[in-house]
Amino acid sequence: MKLSMVRDILGASVLAGETMLESEIKSACGSDLMSDVLAFVKEQGVLLTGLCNPQVVRTAEMMDIICVVFVRGKTPDERIIALARESGIAVMACPLTLYEACGRLYSAGLGRA
């Protein structure tokens, strides 16, 4: 699935990585606990989270995640967006809950075998 489709499915706004929308991703994960992302995530393209701080971007970079979607209407500040740009990570934001955002992407086929 292309990041542009992730944006459309979630009704998200793109805050960083506008040139990455044609990038393909194969799976996603949703978590508010970054240690869980570090412990259990493997080869994920998108991280959906309601946590809003620079450590989300750092965690994404550690795990080769190329896009972070902030859910529940969280708006990352300039510091977070600047860090994402520097790290080559796309940033989106949407008003959906983590549950619904993950559900929509899963229903659309993302991460399904």
């Binding site: 508010d32 606990l33 970054m34 240690s35 869980d36 570090l38 412990a39 989270t49 946590l51 701080n53 450590q55 989300v56 965690t59």
Partner: peptide, 16 residues
């Protein structure tokens, strides 16, 4: 905990 850590997984993750 508010920044997504502090759940007692740091050292176990490192060991893993």
């Amino acid at each position: 905990r508010d920044i997504g850590f502090g759940a007692g997984m740091g050292l176990p993750n490192m060991k893993r």
